[in-house]
Simulated assay, not measured.
Amino acid sequence: MDLARNEISARLASPIVELRQYTLKPGRRETLIDLFDREFIESQEATGMTIIGQFRDLDRPDIFVWMRGFEDMTARKEALSAFYGGPVWAEHRDAANATMIDSDDVLLLKPAWPGAGFDVQRLRRPAPGKVENQSENNCLPGIIEIQIHHLRRGAEAGFANRFETEAVPLLAENGMRLLGAFISE
């Protein structure tokens, strides 16, 4: 029983994460979000992906940010092949692509230290188009900040160690919660 729970926990923690930032045609973000909510979340999850979250960039109205996770690199390859070779993507890709200028800004990531991955086990996604009481329904409330630090090759381990030992306690002291910390896969 513990083995099954650990396997589920590993999948839900998403040890391999894609951070995707799409540049969209002006005014098309809500169109893509509606399509994404309606067609792409459940169909990607059916292939073994975990849709971690999707975000509206508050400073850039034509950017759509989203994250998806995978159990490992083999599962990623299989899930991507299944989704992009499947009927849902074939039916809706033209509509999705019509909203986009660029979809190539993708970072492939892994947890920066043991336990730094996302733990999404207790969270659930609100129904599309519904605004729910986030705290009662285990949704993340408020604003989520994503920071990207571009480092010289080889500097990741030192940066991750300093971030864990110095920055994470400061965040906690200021009432913030770290949801995850990642480095390049």
Rank of each mutant, 00 (worst) to 15 (best):
A82N: 10
P61E: 09
I51P: 03
T47R: 11
F70L: 05
Q21M: 11
Q147Y: 09
A95K: 14
I51C: 09
N6G: 01
V65E: 01
E145Q: 12
R93S: 15
M67F: 04
L12V: 09
S14I: 03
I146H: 02
L24N: 04
R93Q: 15
R28E: 01
L19V: 10
G117D: 10
A96V: 09
G27F: 00
R29Q: 13
W89A: 03
W66N: 07
R29E: 11
F83C: 07
G85V: 06
L19S: 08
E132P: 00
S103L: 00
S81Q: 14
A79P: 04
L32N: 08
L80R: 09
R76Q: 08
G86R: 02
E145K: 07
Q54Y: 15
L80P: 00
L80C: 01
R56M: 09
L32E: 13
I146K: 00
R20F: 00
D94T: 04
R60S: 14
L123K: 12
V120L: 13
E42H: 06
D104V: 07
E39A: 14
L140R: 13
Y22Q: 01
L12C: 04
S135L: 14
G27I: 00
F40G: 10
K25H: 10
A75P: 01
H92N: 11
R28I: 00
A75M: 05
G27S: 05
R76W: 01
L35A: 11
N97A: 06
L12G: 02
N6C: 04
R152D: 13
S103D: 15
M100K: 14
G86L: 03
V106L: 13
I146T: 14
F64P: 04
G27T: 02
P114R: 11
P141I: 09
G129F: 09
D37K: 12
E136V: 03
M73Y: 05
E91Q: 14
E145S: 09
L24C: 07
A79T: 07
D59I: 01
E30K: 06
G85A: 06
E91P: 01
D119Y: 13
T50I: 15
